[in-house]
Design a protein around this nucleic acid. Structure first.
Lengths: 110, 110
DNA sequence: TTATATACATAATTCACTTATGTATCCGCC
DNA sequence: GGCGGATACATAAGTGAATTATGTATATAA
């Protein structure tokens, strides 16, 4: 696991980009997908994920569709057009940040 | 300027690594040096920097030397042995984090 | 003389997170 | 048949690293 401090500020970016790449997903699925992609290094907590999803929806970046799996509820999230645009912005913002940081820390990435 | 959210959790890493590379420095000098290295993209605020320096000192990672420049006070900070070791740890932690993030976000860095 | 830069410091506030808790279903196992 | 662990949602309380605001003081160029 990574120092959780570093994760701060990246959660929205992660959620938006994963939804952009993978299409329709529900909350729990996002946590599992991120866990897989990160080989167990990034574990999204529910207490952080669900409020973030609600916030992104309220801001018009995600739209939802609730379905019943037998007796269990599942809430699928998809990017809106605005969401797709923000996803792109956030990712390039992150990449810029990394480039700046590698200058400041004098490290080679990749 | 970068989204300030992303900076969270990286301040200690920046301070430690800059002191490792540059040797003895005082607070204001650190802000200017980081500003230069980042080409104006990373602006450390005093409200964040000074408490961080005090904390790192209290933890035994920095030692200080206060001198008078004419009538002005300057407080120079240097890494302790423990500080040098932590600097190294924090940087490689950050590099690991970036590698993980580039997997999750499916982006190429560098 | 007045704004800007230099140089330190700390208190109040913000806010994204962690931790804790709650509800409920599904499924394998002994 | 019940128990733990996984699935699946949600929210409230608490934390802590940052921002913002404020204060003190000297140096310097316009």
């Amino acid at each position: 696991m990574h120092s959780p401090e570093l994760l701060k500020g990246t959660l929205q970016t992660i959620v938006l980009k994963v939804l952009k790449d993978h299409g329709k997903m529900y909350g729990y699925e996002i946590t599992q997908h991120v866990k897989d992609l990160s080989e167990g290094r990034l574990l999204l907590t529910e207490g952080a994920l669900y409020p973030t999803l609600h916030k992104l929806e309220a801001e018009g970046f995600l739209k939802t569709e609730t379905i019943m799996m037998g007796k269990r509820v599942r809430k699928y999230y998809t990017l809106t057009t605005a969401g797709r645009s923000v996803a792109k912005e956030r990712v390039s913002e992150f990449v810029d940040f990394i480039k700046t940081m590698s200058n400041v820390l004098q490290v080679q990435i990749g």
